[in-house]
Amino acid sequence: MALLKFLFPPSLFVTATSLASFTTMASAGLSEFRGKNVEYSKFFNVGSKASNAEKSNKLTLPSRIAMATLYTPAFLAGVSSFAIFPEENLRFLLLKSAISIHFFKRVLESCFVHKYSGEMSVETMMTILSSYFISSALMIFTQHLTMGIPEPAIDLKIPGIILFLVGIAGNFYHHFLLSKIRTQGPNKEYKIPRGGLFGIVICPHYLFEVLVFWGFAFISQTLFSFAYAMGTTCYLLGRSHATRRWYLSKFEDFPQNVKSMIPFLF
């Protein structure tokens, strides 16, 4: 198979978890595209069919605390993997390091960069937390399963490192730009983002986050990491479409030529 030139041979376990991961993420992206949004940030209580009483009865946390909390287990999975799987080749070391760096960055951004306008339900927080933690742990575990197996014929580690570095830098830069357009104080207002790639897509931070996960996939070269990168791409395409739709509904002067996530295409 030509695919095996790029991937380690998958076991039944890896194939099953890869299919489950992709299906779950792609379904979530389709839900976002259709307007059933995960309830956090500006989408909190948007598109939900729950009654006001049900919404008010939901247990919530301040968004800063919730966002920092939901990234922490994935970060800990990356860090602890150095002790749990001390056997290392360069590929495994790069993957564990990339996962740890990415989620540590997200925790720091949640604490010190992002500005928030509301709260997040504990249910939503736990859903996202579980997704990131389980997927990170499985990326690491499936890499562990490749120890002793011959390397794929085509080595994608270097392109993976480049994708990861470009992705993490671009993601941080556009998160920083977003934080600069939010006003301080209790009455925070949304504005149309400017600068960077915001002139051509409304969610360049999602675009660069996708590059991070494709960086994981190219470094790892396991079926699971590729399935998760593809699933993440599908989810963030749906999320970016929902974000663009939200901006169109809030701002009459929103530029029609600005796409959702992929410049000039989507």
Rank of each mutant, 00 (worst) to 15 (best):
Ile200Gln: 11
Ser48Arg: 12
Leu265Asn: 00
Val166Met: 15
Pro9Ser: 02
Tyr116Thr: 01
Lys105Asp: 08
Ile154Cys: 14
Ser51Tyr: 06
Ala53His: 13
Ala50Tyr: 14
Tyr132Arg: 03
Met1Leu: 01
Gly78Asp: 08
Val107Ala: 06
Lys188His: 12
Arg244His: 00
Phe43Gly: 00
Ser135Val: 00
Tyr228Ser: 15
His241Asp: 12
Ala66Pro: 05
Ile158Asp: 04
Phe224Ile: 12
Asn57Arg: 15
Phe224Met: 11
Phe104Tyr: 09
Lys36Leu: 01
Leu165Ile: 09
Phe85Pro: 12
His241Leu: 11
Lys157Asn: 15
Ser81Arg: 01
Ile192Glu: 08
Ala20Leu: 13
Lys96Cys: 04
Leu93Phe: 15
Val38Ile: 10
Val113Cys: 13
Pro159Met: 01
Met125Gly: 11
Asn171Lys: 08
Leu95Phe: 06
Asp253Ala: 07
Phe6Gln: 02
Tyr40Lys: 02
Tyr206Met: 11
Arg182Ser: 14
Phe216Lys: 08
Tyr228Trp: 15
Phe133Val: 02
Ser27Ile: 04
Phe8Met: 05
Cys111Arg: 00
Ser220Glu: 06
Asn171Pro: 15
Phe103Ile: 11
Met230Phe: 15
Thr124Val: 11
Met126Asp: 07
Asn257Ala: 10
Lys55Cys: 02
Leu178Phe: 04
Gly199Lys: 08
Ala26Ile: 01
Ala153Lys: 04
Phe103Lys: 05
Arg239Thr: 06
Ser41Glu: 14
Gly29Lys: 06
Thr69Tyr: 03
Pro186Gln: 09
Lys42His: 03
Phe6Ile: 08
Ser18Lys: 12
Val210His: 00
Gly170Thr: 06
Lys157Pro: 14
Glu119Trp: 00
Gln143Pro: 15
Val79Asn: 07
Lys5Trp: 03
Cys234Ala: 14
Leu156His: 07
His175Ser: 03
Lys188Gln: 15
Ile202Ala: 02
Gly185Ala: 00
Val210Trp: 09
Arg106Ala: 03
Glu54Thr: 05
Gly215Val: 02
Phe92Met: 02
Tyr247Leu: 10
Arg64Tyr: 11
Leu178Tyr: 00
Thr15Asn: 13
Gly78Phe: 09
Phe85Met: 01
Phe216Cys: 14
Arg239Met: 03
Glu88Cys: 05
Lys157Cys: 12
Tyr190Lys: 07
Lys105Gln: 13
Gly47Glu: 05
Lys58Tyr: 10
Pro10Gly: 05
Phe172Asn: 14
Phe92His: 07
Arg245Glu: 14
Gly196Met: 05
Lys55Gln: 09
Ala98Asp: 04
Gly238Ser: 10
Phe13Gly: 10
Phe8Gly: 03
Phe82Gln: 11
Ala83Val: 09
Gly238Met: 12
Lys250Ser: 08
Phe224His: 13
Glu123Lys: 11
Ile200Thr: 15
Arg182Glu: 13
Gly47Arg: 00
Arg194Gln: 11
Ser11Pro: 13
Met120Phe: 04
Leu145Cys: 10
Leu4Thr: 05
Leu93Gln: 07
Arg91Asp: 02
Ile168Gly: 12
Val38Gln: 15
Ser48Thr: 13
Val122Ala: 12
Ala137Ile: 10
Pro193Trp: 01
Ala26Trp: 15
Ser249Ile: 00
Leu237Ile: 10
Ile168Arg: 08
Leu248Ala: 11
Thr17Gly: 06
Gly78Lys: 03
Tyr132Glu: 12
Leu59Cys: 13
Gly199Thr: 04
Gly199Ser: 14
Val107Ser: 10
Ala217Met: 14
Phe104Glu: 05
Leu265Tyr: 01
Pro255Tyr: 09
Ser63Pro: 00
Phe33Gly: 08
Ser135Lys: 00
Tyr116Phe: 03
Thr124Ala: 12
